[in-house]
Design a protein around this nucleic acid. Structure first.
Length: 578
RNA sequence: GCGGCUGUAGUCUAGUCUGGUUAGGACUUGGGCCUUCCAAGCCUACGACCCGGGUUCAAAUCCCGGCAGCCGCACCA
């Protein structure tokens, strides 16, 4: 199959320094890509924009945690045990299979959740053979997608490269909760590398072994998944491809955020709000609506920890619909699991709106009798009574006139005169709960690819990335109309001024003016400034708009201000006064 | 990981079957000339046989192994 656009985009990306495969002079390694000079800038600008959305607009805070994680963490998260596939290999033809799949296929038996040993046993007992050549299969082994490493000089401690940035946020939850002064909801983000040792990654930058994630973990009260700004977005249209529609083999439907909530298509306001943010973000990166859709995970494909999960997918000619963002309700799975494994209480105290009054029967030892009777054993007994079922004691006393209690192999008989029962009213101000986690997870590399693919434009024999100016790696080009010393001097001076004003500006004298414009357009530079002979007299230059080729003549001294206004969208190009 | 196909400058490609001078061309890129606004022209320079081993007097060319890419299978919390 020919993928003209993909091939063109990747060729230009390689040629002009956006992206290329890593370790090229050593033939490369599949699943690793370098960002070149322009690619690194572009990626940073996209991440900046992402942070602008999540940190500034949503009010979340960013943290940074290590990419190497000790085994315990990933044991608790389930990655050590579950981020694996059981594999088996044919001894004859060396074909590799998913062990569970082959058993289900060959003998039609559900083996989900069985251990490798059990799978191996089934294979030998049921005589499951290689479906291709009939050969014997090896015993089942786990292929874990994580990169394993050893921590420390003696290498006794097993570590893994993190398979997602999320875990780095769950681990310091107690400190984060304290930072946010104990109140839900709050959000924490992390941008960084994650690692998955894919068996055979062959989808370019779409499937990398080392990739960049931008994730937010939003901790919410499970009883309250509303969003305070939902009313502002309820009329926004979203193209939803729900599980139900997928099963019915239907088409995605355009539906308003409000309806999506009212009809229960998306499980909560806060989840829909995240879909809305994702859509807005992608639009502003120059990805058109037609190639964006939200696809709900089917119950069968949903991760074990999630109750609802939507992928934001972008259409690509080469790979079809590609997940570039995953938005999941992870519930309390992670915090609960880390609580069990670490013995740290990762719950949050939720104060009730109105304190609850609870009537409760308590035991009050009658110390004037109790003390002298039990003497040195009295404190022990009192302590034991604190943890005991009061109703049971009361019943026993009422029916048998005694209650027997065992402490350290000794029996004590409590008599009615030793105890008073009192009904007290207790005030319950709140309860401890595990927050639920809403997680938008952005695959930055896939987004960079989508942006390049979908901003790539061919018109009038021009081929260029029509990057929104906000994410253009180079903001302005400065050229002499002709490669003459006196023009170059002025152009260099202008470039210097622009750099002093914080713009990324480039200067180019090679070839003719047309070629220079073409080179500048190709990498998506939104504006070009050209110095001509008249500039020597009138101190004016032309400024050219990439997208419509229009030009305006402006004073050299006004350039930094004009460009600043243009870049910040305070004015449009046609508003420039000559 | 398995099978098939492929691997020559930044890009596209000639040469490989049939081993033999200094691996040829086009585009791109750098420098220069020319040129008063959108990849023009001229001069000039830089730049390649995927890696390793074998056969041979001699390997881009034949053989073996590796790596990478593409396609199919498998895999894809």
């Amino acid at each position: 199959m020919i993928h003209m656009k993909h091939d063109k985009v990747m060729n230009i990306a390689k040629k002009r320094g956006f992206l290329w495969s890593s370790f090229e002079i050593y033939a490369g390694v599949a699943g690793f890509y370098d960002y070149g000079p322009l690619g690194a800038l572009l990626k940073d600008l996209i991440i900046d924009k992402w942070k602008n959305y999540y940190i500034i607009r949503e009010g979340f805070y960013e943290i940074e945690s290590p990419t190497v994680m000790p085994e315990e963490v990933l044991k608790a998260s389930g990655h050590v045990d579950n981020f694996t596939d059981p594999m088996t290999e044919c001894k004859e033809c060396l074909e590799v299979y998913r062990a569970d799949h082959i058993i289900e296929e060959m003998i039609n038996r559900d083996v989900e959740g069985l251990s490798n040993e059990e799978l191996t046993q089934i294979i030998s007992e049921e005589k499951v053979m290689c479906p291709r050549c009939g050969g014997h299969l090896t015993k089942v082994w786990n292929y874990n997608l994580m990169f394993q490493t050893l921590i420390g000089a003696k290498g006794k401690k097993t570590g893994y490269m993190r398979p997602e940035t999320a875990q780095g946020i769950f681990i310091p939850f107690k400190r984060l909760l304290r930072f946010f002064r104990g109140k839900l909801p709050f959000g924490v983000v992390q941008v960084g590398k994650a690692y998955r040792n894919e068996i055979s990654p062959r989808q370019g930058v779409i499937r990398l072994r080392e990739f960049t994630q931008a994730e937010a973990e939003i901790f919410v009260n499970p009883e309250d998944k509303t969003h305070e700004r939902f009313h502002e977005i309820k009329d926004t249209m979203l193209k939803l491809y729900s599980g139900e529609i997928q099963l019915a083999e239907g088409e995605p439907v355009e539906i308003s955020a409000g309806d999506a909530h009212d009809k229960g298509i998306v499980s909560s306001q806060i989840l829909i709000y995240q879909l809305y943010i994702a859509q807005k973000f992608l639009r502003e990166l120059g990805i058109p609506d037609e190639v964006i859709r939200f696809r709900q995970h089917l119950p069968t494909e949903m991760a074990h920890y999630a109750i609802d999960c939507w992928d934001v997918e972008v259409y690509t000619e080469k790979y079809g619909w590609v997940e570039i963002i995953g938005i999941a309700d992870r519930t309390d799975f992670d915090l609960k699991s880390h609580t069990e494994h670490s013995n740290e209480d990762l719950r949050v105290f939720i104060e009730h709106d109105v304190p609850k009054m609870v009537k409760k029967l308590t035991i009050k030892p009658n110390m004037s009798k109790f003390g002298p009777y039990f003497k040195e054993d009295a404190p022990k007994i009192i302590k034991a009574l604190e943890d005991i079922d009061v109703e049971e004691v009361k019943k026993s006393i009422e029916s048998d006139n005694a209650f027997n209690i065992q402490i350290e192999d000794k029996n004590f008989e409590l008599l009615p005169e030793h105890l008073n029962f009192e009904e007290i009213e207790e005030i319950i101000r709140g309860e401890k709960i595990f927050p639920h986690v809403i997680e938008p997870s952005y695959g930055i590399d896939r987004i960079v690819y989508s942006v390049l693919l979908h901003t790539f434009t061919e018109d009038n024999e021009r081929e260029y990335f029509k990057l929104p100016k906000e994410i253009a790696p180079v903001e302005v080009s400065v050229f002499p109309l002709l490669n003459k010393k006196e023009l170059n001097q002025i152009a260099l001076k202008i470039r210097g001024d622009l750099r002093d004003n914080g713009f990324i500006a480039q200067f180019d004298t090679s070839g003719t003016i047309g070629r220079r414009y073409a080179r500048s357009d190709e990498i998506g530079v939104p504006f070009a400034i050209t110095v001509d002979h008249e500039s020597l007299d009138d101190k004016k230059v032309t400024i050219r708009n990439r997208d419509d080729l229009k030009q305006k003549r402006v004073l050299i001294s006004d350039i930094p201000e004009i460009l600043d206004d243009l870049m910040k969208s305070k004015i449009e190009f046609e508003d420039i006064t000559q």
